[in-house]
Write a protein that binds this DNA or RNA. Structure first.
Length: 549
DNA sequence: GTTAGGG
DNA sequence: CCCTAAC
């Protein structure tokens, strides 16, 4: 019904009536340009276009229809149970979060021998004895596997804004929406959880986790947020910049730092970033090193268990849930564990090297040291890999879990700087290469340069749809470009496309010798400039007017 | 949720 | 590619 009503407005593939937002945008835009004539012309054209093209609908009716559409759409949207939200709630209710664990006995003494004398393997032997765990909430992942209720496709488009043919394609696509491939959806209501959604879940989970019983029977205790901060701010001098940057930081990001990854401050400016080759980092040559004592002090802040899956009946008690988690954890850690050492993203394989030789003792190179706990792969049946959540032997038939492929630790190296001041050096590397990075909301997406064919598709779509600017009474959107040309490319968001177009225009304008990356054919760049000029220059109004009338 | 624009 | 004000 709504769809039909929208389609009546279609004309030559362009949407005709102003969207609920359009007039405001238009006014603002015109206002910005201080072009009152254009504004008047817009109003006039809107009226004319409405009269000419809406087949019996005058402007007033049109407006009314729009409002009805909006109303219907919003009601429909509300009526459809938002599975995503349900999942949010579920995630909160079923979180298996525990806080990070700091071993009762500081690990500082673990490697207290002379740095030049203790080997990597010496150090590793100490690590498993102090293991704790941090179990990540994985329900956010499960959300992506949820199918919507009734298989009934929701009204995708909001507010009835898009009434052109592109949107019809969109709706049609969603009408034939297939439940067997939920991952592939760009569906508005059921698209995979955004990173913001993840953050919300994580934040809620994190808030809950501080209420978890503070002690396990093995005596390992959960540290609190306060403790983390305490550790974190051992050295005011070192952390000053970070604190200041957090204070100035947007709230969202600040929250991420505080709640999600209190140890991750490697993004702060001034954080040293050295070469990737950890093995070549010798500490002996560094004059600064000589003022330190020869002991390497490591504090392992926590171990994290990524990809930890549990299924348990809804009717199970909290008690049995706890027991299940405990059994799962026990099963993982009772098996043989191996410890790996990562330095600056590179695994140190030679156990006979000294810490000095590997650079582990070198404070300036320690932004990227981490330990991994890995269950013995031989004991892990292939069916237990995270991709295949097959049940394993557990006391309850309906309970199942799959163990993590690796257990990665957050860590800090603590090195004495001044008299009693401890400097904490943030970890980097292991988390960045582990699977858990998929759950790390703060992770920056990898750079994926646009291929020429992608550029071509983008240019083609923009040529047809425009760049999201307000043109006469027609509003085109990057969203439509995305749906039309990049619907299958899940890694290309409409923002990406918009950004790419921005750089394409820039590229097209600069001299060829100034361009970088994969060369874009001049022909395409010409089309970019042409399309850009068409959709954005001041003549667009005139041009579009001609097109419409 | 989208868009536009600065970083 | 990120971030976010403005819509």
């Amino acid at each position: 019904m709504v769809l039909q009503k929208r389609l009546e407005y279609g004309f030559n593939g362009y949407q005709i009536p102003p969207t609920p937002r359009a007039p405001r945008s238009a006014r603002k835009r015109v206002k910005k340009n201080e072009n009152h004539n254009q504004m008047q012309a817009f109003d006039l054209l809107a009226t004319i276009a409405g009269k000419l093209l809406l087949e019996g609908n005058n402007s007033a009716d049109n407006k009314l229809s729009q409002e009805e559409t909006v109303k219907e759409t919003s009601i429909k949207t509300e009526e459809i149970p938002s599975k995503g939200n349900d999942c949010d709630q579920e995630s909160c209710n079923k979180s298996f979060f525990v806080s990070e664990i700091i071993p009762k006995a500081p690990v500082n003494d673990t490697c207290s021998g002379p740095a030049s004398g203790i080997t990597v393997s010496d150090c590793l032997e100490k690590v498993p004895e102090n293991v704790g765990c941090k179990i990540e909430d994985i329900n956010d992942k499960r959300m992506t596997n949820e199918a919507p209720n009734n298989g009934k496709p929701p009204v995708v488009d909001d507010l009835g804004r898009n009434v052109n043919l592109v949107v019809r394609d969109d709706d049609e696509k969603n009408s034939s929406w297939c439940m067997t491939q939920p991952q592939g959806l760009t569906n508005k209501t059921f698209r995979p959880p955004s990173r913001i959604g993840d953050r919300r879940i994580r934040r809620l989970s994190a808030l809950k986790q501080w209420n978890v019983a503070p002690k396990l029977n093995n005596g390992v205790r959960f540290n609190t947020d306060a403790e983390l901060k305490h550790v974190y701010h051992h050295n005011k001098k070192t952390c000053y910049k970070h604190q200041r940057s957090l204070r100035d930081y947007p709230f969202k990001k600040r929250r991420l730092y505080q709640l999600e990854n209190p140890s991750d401050s490697d993004n702060r400016s001034g954080s040293p970033r050295k070469g990737e080759d950890g093995s070549s980092l010798g500490g002996a040559q560094d004059p600064n090193f000589q003022v330190q004592d020869s002991h390497v002090k490591l504090k392992i802040k926590s171990f994290r268990v990524p990809e930890f899956f549990i299924e348990i009946p809804e009717t199970a008690t909290v008690s049995s849930l706890k027991r299940t988690v405990m059994e799962a954890v026990t099963a993982i850690f009772s098996g043989e564990l191996h410890v790996g050492v990562m330095l600056q993203g590179k695994r140190i394989r030679d156990d006979n090297k000294t810490l000095l030789q590997t650079g582990i003792c070198h404070e300036d190179k320690l932004e990227a040291l981490g330990f991994m706990l890995e269950p013995d792969r031989l004991q892990v049946p292939p069916s237990l890999c995270p991709e295949d959540r097959s049940p394993v032997t557990t006391p309850k038939p309906l309970t199942r879990y799959s163990p993590p492929e690796s257990v990665v630790t957050n860590f800090r190296k603590i090195t004495e700087v001044d008299n009693n001041t401890l400097a904490t050096v943030p970890a980097k590397g292991p988390l960045a290469v582990s699977k858990s990075k998929q759950q790390d909301c703060a992770q920056r997406r990898i750079r994926r340069p646009f291929s020429v064919s992608e550029v071509e598709a983008l240019v083609e779509a923009v040529e047809k749809l425009g760049t999201g600017r307000y043109v006469c009474v027609v509003m085109f959107r990057w969203r439509d470009v995305k749906l039309r040309a990049f619907d299958d490319a899940k890694h290309r968001t409409y923002v990406d496309l918009k950004d790419k177009w921005k750089t394409l225009v820039h590229t097209a304008r600069i001299a060829p010798q100034q361009r970088r990356g994969e060369p874009v054919p001049q022909e395409l760049l010409d089309r970019v400039l042409e399309a850009h000029a068409y959709w954005s220059n001041n003549n667009q109004f005139k041009t579009q007017t001609c097109r419409l009338l």
